[in-house]
Design a protein around this nucleic acid. Structure first.
Lengths: 343, 343
DNA sequence: ATTTATTATGCAATCGATTGCATAACCGGC
DNA sequence: GCCGGTTATGCAATCGATTGCATAATAAAT
């Protein structure tokens, strides 16, 4: 038999209303009563039933977080940022993954709203915003993170993917590497699209013609990076550099270069997007575009809480964070190392 | 104005009880009524209020999951396994991270039980089980994952860390490498303890004296692996091999070996624990002990659901999964590669 | 001493479902 | 036409809180 607020009322000799007010620090309660009730609460080990409370207040102090996958470092670093910020403000996080499948995503949203999350933070999968129309009309605030959706305005936190890419590719060009390959993902995803856009812009900026033969699109995963790097390496006229659009494609590409031994024959100037725990160990890239992943999460959390608390009510806002650019002058250049002692 | 079950009752010309029974597929409801009510539900876009339902049924269909950190691949692969299994069975996942701090962990547990999670899956942080005594006495089922706690029996899913380590170290010894260093973590954590135990056993099995000078304890993180590898490398009499107790320490150790250039001077036979997405790219290890992380998660989910549904009631059970052992005969051996063309 | 203002507390409705028990409706059997 | 037996549905209590409104108690004012 769990102890309820009513029990506390009884043993304290007051009404349930009074106990409830003590719990919510209502200033109308006298100091004496407050102390007495608090003492009984402490003795009895009473704990509020948040479910009952939520039913009445229509707030759950819970924010839903949906990412394409759980086991990806970028998404989970964002999640950590969200969680830290939420916890600091007394909120919980209900989490789910969509597997990059819009149908599963919809299902997750449906289930979360049924559980009355106060707000939803979503890293959406590919596609447009039409599937979110219903959600948008509901009372549940939404913040899009990392990726935007065509034809859908909502609060959002993103980084400037085009600018980050453009700057990195430009840097390579300024060092005289003009033939830069591209390993990206489906342009149905805004980040993939924007990174491609930045790549194109860099070419335009430098008046360099873009060779479509060395532009490859995959799906942001390791196998894809592996396969595309192989295609690139198989070209008769190899690229001098390669831009690789995310961490996992970089892992795959690196794996190919190492396994095939290609790395001992050709020295690609690699740019990779995302700085993760393994990045300093792989060291094949000359340039790394980094994202403030935790800050993205923290920003999204602050944004959603602003809506939830009604502190912010106007039209959707977008928070755009900048990317970093790290040069690895100590990057491997295995072939030169190997050749140095030898030749 | 949200539509409630009562509204559906009214427009269908039946009582709320009947609608509720339709919703739960009660066989006593006649086909005609069922169809009529379902039609009204569909037209109106009615959706049950899970909060109200939970208040009455005392079940939330939600399982809490607490891990030391969110942004670690192992934990999140487990989480993905948990989530997939839970979703397949109609359950949600409330997630939180303890930051390896028992106080935060307790707080998370407290908050989750206040939200009436039906069960709790916990990857605990260091320390003993006393802090969980209260939880254990409550009605909330608990499954410990990955790590066990001294003096605390509960359902659990773990891998055989000692055995996995022992076999790997033994393999190295059989290849003639008898001086094997150890880079591990605090023995307050059961996995760290067990991996050390396996390392010791391998020595005993082979009648090899263990040199405490090359046994180092850190904290499972990258910086720690980096620092300990440096210590090991600084020894006058270097080890022939090194066992590194988890992925992040391996990353750190690898980073040190690469940055310091040590890798070009000495060829450590490395064993690393955990096979992660970056593992095939790093390729410094000769042997990798792998864990079935998703299966751990899925197993934990099944275990907790068994308790939640009351299908399983007896004393605590432990599910112990085996580890894999992968040999990388193509592992880097950079120094030999460099020397081959040269010398 | 009576009225007015102020402060502290209680009453009772409410949030939106579920469910044990009662009952109405219908069936065939005699 | 009455009765026991199903079958389908409704009544009303309940889960554990919150909160607007009423009121009791006390203090202040006249």
């Amino acid at each position: 038999m769990t102890i309820t607020l009513k029990d506390i009322a009884k043993i304290s000799g007051v009404s349930a209303a009074t106990v409830s007010r003590v719990l919510s620090d209502d200033p109308r309660i006298s100091g004496a009563t407050r102390e007495k009730v608090l003492a009984r609460i402490r003795e009895s080990g009473y704990r509020v039933n948040d479910i009952a409370r939520s039913l009445k207040t229509r707030r759950t102090n819970t924010i839903g977080f949906i990412a394409p996958l759980l086991a990806e470092e970028f998404f989970m670093t964002v999640a950590q940022g969200v969680e830290d910020e939420l916890r600091a403000q007394g909120f919980h996080m209900l989490i789910a993954s969509s597997k990059e499948d819009p149908r599963i995503e919809c299902e997750c949203i449906e289930l979360m709203t049924r559980r009355w999350v106060d707000g939803l933070i979503l890293i959406p999968c590919a596609g447009d915003g039409s599937r979110l129309a219903r959600l948008a009309k509901s009372r549940v605030p939404l913040v899009l993170v990392d990726r935007l959706l065509k034809g859908f305005r909502a609060d959002a936190v993103v980084v400037d993917n085009a600018q980050g890419t453009r700057r990195a590719v430009a840097r390579l060009m300024e060092r005289g590497i003009t033939r830069v390959g591209f390993i990206g993902a489906s342009r149905k995803i805004s980040t993939a699209r924007d990174r491609y856009r930045g790549y194109v812009q860099a070419h335009r900026d430098h008046g360099i013609a873009l060779d479509p033969a060395i532009v490859k699109f995959g799906d942001f995963h390791q196998e894809s990076g592996y396969g595309l790097m192989r295609e690139l390496a198989a070209m008769k006229r190899p690229a001098g550099g390669v831009f690789i659009a995310n961490h996992y494609m970089y892992l795959g590409a690196a794996q190919y270069l190492l396994e095939s031994g290609n790395i001992y024959r050709h020295d690609y100037a690699i740019i990779n997007f995302d700085e993760m725990s393994a990045t300093p160990v792989i060291r094949l890239a000359k340039l790394t575009v980094s994202q403030p992943s935790r800050e993205i999460g923290a920003g999204a959390a602050r944004m959603i809480l602003g809506r939830v608390r009604g502190e912010r009510t106007g039209p959707p806002e977008t928070l755009t964070l900048g990317t970093g650019l790290v040069a690895h002058d100590d990057a491997y250049s295995l072939n030169s190392m190997i050749n140095k002692p030898g030749a």
